[in-house]
Amino acid sequence: MDEERLNRAVRGIRMPEDARQRLLHRLKEERPRRAVRLPKRPALAAVAACLALALGLPALAANVEPAYTLLYRASPAAAQYLQPVRESDEDSDIRMEVVSAAVQGDTAEVWVALQDRTGSRVDETTDLFDSYSIRSPADQSAHCELAGYDEATGTALFRLRITRADGKSWQGEKVTFSLKGFLSRRAAYEQVEIPLDLARLPQNAETRPVTLTGHGSPSGNAPDAFDALVPGEGQKDFPVEGFSLTGAAWAADGLHIQLAVKNRQQNDNNAEVYLLGPESEKTFCDFLGYFRAGEGENRVDYMEYVFSGTPQTLADCRLAGDFYTAGLLTEGNWKVTFRLEGGE
């Protein structure tokens, strides 16, 4: 057998461009922990469309059938091996049901439905935020994603994958899934230009050290200290509601752009700010720092983006960003205990 030919043949396999774009879109939608999830899910778009009222889903009993219909539409293959659970809890006219589950060794797949029985608080952008928790006999990690939505019954279906840290099987173990709230009515505003003349921004701006609550950088390491701009009043008429531009200036380490968000615990407003070059090519920041001021109702969360460069080197750049907001936080107390069985 010609090993060189095998090598060449396999290396000739490349990810198709449409698949690459879908992948990038999906990866950029997802954020750890405080995930900003958008309604556009390329892999599930067709499924979500099929779930819409246009297919004429029958007027079903509100408590069980919508979830199962969603499950079969979202993953017909999965529905065949899943073990029904059908345990539910209701609060504030929102019904949460653990529909089905299956076990494969140290990983369990659990399907959870959320239905608004009286209103439209559950929609196709519903995000469980980081308000859910899983109590189990073992340490675990979980990943949750929206799998489908039925507009007719106001039901969203989520798929959770829970992996044990100790590698043992979940089979027969009892777990409790709790939810304290969820976000919905989310919107995304992409490539919105922020009208600023970068060359005319203040230079040698005053900064002060702040305590970071989060960060992002190529190295992944948190700096020992971060000097942020002193927040200003906020620019009037910022192009996206829910954000304020509280600082824009040149400091010793480059261009600082500071955004502020109020009530971030309730709206999870988030943004990715970048520079656009002459050909609209994107340059992302070299560092992103999160910090906050105030408490409770007076709390303000700041995001400060730092771009290396000078007014001369970045003279041809414009400032823009992708902004993500959520219109509604619904709080409650939902809890379901069930046993993990099936699958394998």
């Binding site: 690459r20 922990r33 960060h215 920041c285 992103l288 999160y290």
Partner: peptide, 15 residues
């Protein structure tokens, strides 16, 4: 609770 965000451009790099 500290929040971590992947560095901008990380998705593009890894893909």
């Amino acid at each position: 609770m500290e929040q971590f965000t992947p560095p901008p451009g990380e998705a593009e790099r890894v893909v």
